[in-house]
Design a protein around this nucleic acid. Structure first.
Length: 413
DNA sequence: GAATGTTTATGAAGTA
DNA sequence: TACTTCATAAACATTC
């Protein structure tokens, strides 16, 4: 027998495409620091993506080339090719959109059942391809979106914090870096936003941390399916009423109010949300609105400066926020909504919105791959060829595909 | 002690 | 332009 580690049930592998599944709880250890196998898979360690070193938890799948790749799940004879150029939705523009639609229509017109089936899986591969080939780009999804994805894609609709972390890292290579930074933000988002509700563990499932789920009335925050920015922030009515009440109260007593050195309200209690959340209760208000109002003048000035920067083709002042690519993506989405949905009935259903992460991630399992398209017929053929070797169905709750490998470049055309 | 959870604070960017 | 949403940092508390 081979000395290869046991392959989890939800992991499949072919010579051409590795499907790296992740079934909650993730049973796979991707840490390069603990796995010599991962170091074997990539020729470079630490791995770099477009020159940017990744964290120690980087997957082997995004490593650079190895002629014979050994992974914890087996051996692959394929060559992972990264850093090659591929048009991506992060780099979209109007012309690309037009091309995409044309290609999409051509695909629909010319396809038979066989190629449709191929396209189902190819679509997911294409999406993952784009994701992986943009590994250093920040995904244009907010933390609230990412958490929502994790919860909604989980069959039980509940995730622990660590499972949310894992989902994000599984799905978006960008977040395999600077984990302390974004994980703090994730925790903040969970606590701060009313749309997330903490569910205590049952006695038969002991462990650290609670489960997190979506508030009953917040399950449709992203009803347009695009997960980019919510139309309106969800606020629990009870909490909002409490906030308003207490804000007014605070305003009346503004002169008297005295916060501690940490700025905490006397009402603040770190245990309050947990106890109240489980009962859909209330939390202490914040003074954020007041503080924001005080900074409006400065904010407006900065905003003007950034507008000038953007007119000149420069990014905003703060690189921490969404990259310019996200702006382009949103423009692309806007163009799509305005000009394409109107004449393409296939996209009139929001469930087919190509920017919906649920569409992207579930297509291989349930969807119609023909709704995907790419502006490159070459790439489409590669994906279609790749799909022939993809195992299905698969049982993983969360899944993603490694990028198509170089072997496809020869076999696909 | 590490992971998890809560809150305050600040500022960038989007929207009406 | 005012307001909202989101990202990030940090302090601190709680839980395992």
């Amino acid at each position: 027998m081979s000395s290869s580690p046991k392959i989890p049930n939800n992991v499949y592998q072919t010579n051409n495409i590795q499907q790296v599944g992740c079934c909650y709880p993730s049973s796979m250890n991707y840490s390069t620091s603990n796995s010599t196998n991962m170091q074997m898979m990539g020729s470079l360690s630490p791995v770099t993506m477009n020159g940017i070193p990744t964290s120690s938890s980087t997957y082997g799948q995004i490593s650079n080339a190895g002629t014979l790749s050994t992974t914890p799940y087996g051996t692959s004879s394929s060559i992972n090719v990264l850093n090659s150029l591929s048009p991506t939705r992060y780099q979209g523009n109007n012309q690309m959109l037009t091309e995409k639609v044309n290609n999409h229509q051509n695909i629909n017109n010319n396809s038979n059942n066989s190629t449709n089936n191929a396209a189902v899986v190819a679509a997911a591969a294409a999406n993952a391809y784009r994701r992986n080939f943009n590994a250093c780009a920040k995904p244009p999804y907010s933390y609230i979106s990412l958490i929502t994805m994790a919860i909604q894609l989980c069959p039980s609709k509940m995730c622990t914090l660590s499972e949310i972390y894992q989902f994000i890292m599984d799905s978006f290579p960008y977040y395999r870096q600077n984990q302390q930074r974004w994980q703090n933000s994730i925790r903040h988002s969970l606590s701060f936003n009313d749309c997330f509700v903490k569910v205590p563990r049952s006695p038969d499932r002991p462990g650290k941390g609670s489960y997190w789920t979506l508030h009953n009335e917040a399950t449709n925050m992203f009803e347009n399916g695009c997960y980019l920015r919510r139309q309106k922030r969800f606020k629990c009515p009870k909490r909002e009423a409490f906030r308003i009440h207490h804000r007014d109260s605070n305003n009346r007593n503004l002169d008297k109010s005295n916060t501690s050195s940490s700025g905490r309200s006397p009402l603040s209690s770190s245990s309050q949300k947990s106890s109240d959340d489980s009962q859909h209760g209330l939390i202490s208000p914040t003074n954020q609105n007041q503080q924001r109002s005080m900074s409006i003048t400065q904010n407006s000035f900065i905003h003007q400066q950034n507008t000038i920067h953007q007119r000149n083709g420069q990014s905003g002042a703060d690189s921490r926020n969404h990259p310019v690519a996200a702006t382009k993506l949103k423009q692309e989405q806007c163009d799509f909504n305005n000009h394409i949905m109107s004449f393409d009935p296939h996209f009139s259903n929001i469930n087919y919105h190509p920017f919906a992460i649920t569409t992207l991630m579930q297509a291989a399992a349930t969807g119609d791959g023909s709704k995907f398209y790419d502006n490159s017929a070459l790439n489409y053929n590669l994906y279609a060829a790749a799909s022939a070797n993809l195992p299905q169905p698969f049982s993983s709750d969360y899944y993603m595909y490694a990028p198509p490998t170089q072997t496809l470049a020869h076999g696909g055309m």
